[in-house]
Simulated assay, not measured.
Amino acid sequence: MKNKKTKFIDLGLIDYKQAWDYQEEIFKKTVDLKIVNRKLSDDQQKMTPNYLLFCHHPHVYTLGKSGDMDHLLLDDKGLQEKDASFYKINRGGDITYHGPGQLVGYPILDLDNFFTDIHKYLRFLEEAIILTMKDYGIVSGRIDGLTGVWVDIDNPKKARKICAMGVKSSRWVTMHGFAFNVNTDLSYFNNIVPCGIDDKAVTSLEKEIGQKPDMNKVKEILKGHISDLFEMKLSN
């Protein structure tokens, strides 16, 4: 029984921990429902829900499970001076930055409703960003061995990361997601070794197109591409 209905929620500007707690709450309910369903006959099982959350965070650095603490180049005083917070979290990946002007997406999906392939899931999220960039006239893509979306992928010395990714999944339920630099203050990336990669720069949509894009328009375009790729039925 596949349910491709997906509830879209724009959380706006929200504290990182508050958004994380909200994700965890939805994630746990979905996983718990799947555990209960396994004990029931097909006609008694309840459909699992899907969510797509968009938001922005105040300045924050987050370190994934496999991350290296040395990749944060600020001490407690430095964090305070930058008005930034820091969290060790339960997604994959190393360290990254979130802040105003960055579009963060948290799909909390039961992949049993779509396809049970975490690599395909990541590639679809990347593809949604790549298609959004294309709509703004910018060619972007992937670099072998690295997650996320990059500009100038054919020139290793000039390659720039525009979208970072880090996800967690359990029983094919996903959480965490992507961070797309739209109008981001890129100077905050100078305080970390982004995703543990010290020989690649970061960029933003604003920097690439030479003007500040309308965030609401970017959201609508990206939301459309995610919906199309996953064949979702989005509702607010």
Rank of each mutant, 00 (worst) to 15 (best):
T30L: 11
V31C: 12
L33F: 03
K34T: 10
K34P: 07
V36M: 12
N37F: 11
R38K: 15
R38S: 14
L40K: 15
L40W: 09
S41V: 09
S41D: 13
D43E: 15
Q44F: 03
Q45P: 09
Q45G: 10
K46L: 13
M47W: 08
M47Q: 14
M47P: 03
T48A: 14
Y51G: 00
L52R: 12
L53W: 14
F54H: 10
C55P: 02
H57S: 07
P58Q: 03
T62A: 01
L63N: 06
G64P: 12
K65M: 03
K65N: 03
K65H: 02
S66L: 09
G67D: 01
G67Y: 11
D68M: 05
D70W: 01
D70Y: 00
H71N: 15
H71P: 08
H71C: 01
L72F: 00
L72T: 02
D75T: 13
D76G: 04
K77E: 06
K77L: 13
G78P: 01
Q80Y: 10
Q80D: 11
Q80L: 11
S85F: 10
F86L: 04
Y87A: 07
Y87F: 15
K88R: 15
K88Y: 06
I89M: 05
I89P: 00
N90P: 00
N90T: 05
N90E: 15
G92M: 08
Y97T: 08
G99E: 13
G99K: 00
P100A: 00
G101I: 05
V104F: 08
G105Q: 12
